[in-house]
Design a protein around this nucleic acid. Structure first.
Length: 285
DNA sequence: GCCCAGGAGTGTG
DNA sequence: CACACTCATGGG
């Protein structure tokens, strides 16, 4: 089953391969395959052409899931205008990243994924999530399984989870799966941003950074600005800003305001690209 | 082998 | 408030 959809601007490699989300894989022909909800989807797009979506037969809702995941409603031009007017660092090279979109993940999957992401690199995070999904998730297609449900992970033992390579993260995942009810997770959608951060931070294994990632990529709060080691480097190098998480977060909030999440993704992508001796789009203020 | 990783929790000054 | 230390383990 095939669809063509207008969704611009969009760069699949930048969006799906940069560490916001961990289950998409690039196939040899340059298309991207990943699980969305209960189905396996393949996306293909060359610059200047429409997005091509391949889904399983009879799944007319695949296009809707893809558009939701890629936040088709975000007006990227408007977001970049807002950031450009606020920040001289982003003002110049941001156009080169206009295809980098924030994704919208399932809240539960996002929460567990970023608890696992603490002090691990992206390939390892992907490995942990694939191992968990293979062991506890329902098969979808092509040997790919759904992300495990909360109820299923609640029944997993700590040693079982450690055997999936989670290390010291195993008890966190187990405790969250057992203690966080579906209703409580659902009710978090109604909280305002600061309340949501506080509610997430009550969970074991969730601190400032994980809470901001879950608020941004799971709950779609574009004002969130997660700060990891790469962002600390970017803020020090480009803005000469250092200090505690709270201090850096307040700087970002004042500087970038309602679209801080997009600013964060641009700076994060740029900093990693810079470290890999790739193109560097931004220079100091 | 070595260093690092989209950090958090706990204890101490 | 700021640091220091520990926590497992696969990738580069």
């Amino acid at each position: 089953m095939n669809f063509r959809t207008e969704l611009e601007p969009l760069d699949l490699a930048k969006t799906l391969g940069c560490g916001q989300t961990f289950r998409w894989r690039m196939l040899p022909d340059g298309s991207w395959r990943g699980p969305l909800d209960d189905q396996l989807v393949v996306l293909k797009k060359s610059p200047g052409s429409k997005l091509h979506i391949s889904a399983e037969p009879g799944r007319e809702d695949a296009a809707r899931l893809v558009k939701e995941h890629l936040r088709a409603g975000d007006d990227i031009a408007r977001i970049q205008r807002s950031l450009r007017s606020r920040d001289p660092v982003l003002r110049k090279g941001m156009g080169g990243l206009k295809g980098l979109r924030i994704v919208k993940m399932d809240e539960w999957e996002c929460l567990v994924s970023f608890v696992l992401a603490t002090y691990a690199n992206i390939p390892r995070i992907s490995l942990m999530i694939e191992t968990l999904s293979k062991k506890y998730g329902e098969p979808i297609a092509g040997g790919v399984n759904r992300f495990p449900s909360r109820a299923r992970l609640a029944r997993a033992g700590e040693s079982e989870l450690r055997a999936c390579g989670l290390g010291y993260r195993a008890p966190y995942v187990r405790a969250i799966a057992q203690d966080l009810t579906d209703d409580r997770l659902e009710s978090m959608k109604d909280l305002d941003f600061e309340e949501l951060r506080d509610a997430l931070k009550e969970l074991p294994g969730v601190g400032d950074k994980v809470a901001d990632c879950v608020a941004l990529f799971g709950f779609g709060r574009l004002e969130a600005f997660p700060i990891d080691v790469w962002m600390e480097r970017a803020l020090a190098r480009l803005y000469h800003k250092r200090g505690s998480y709270t201090r850096l977060r307040e700087f970002a909030s004042e500087r970038f305001s309602q679209y801080a999440g997009y600013a964060q993704e641009y700076l994060y992508y740029n900093e990693r690209s810079h470290a890999a001796k790739g193109p560097c789009l931004f220079s100091e203020e």
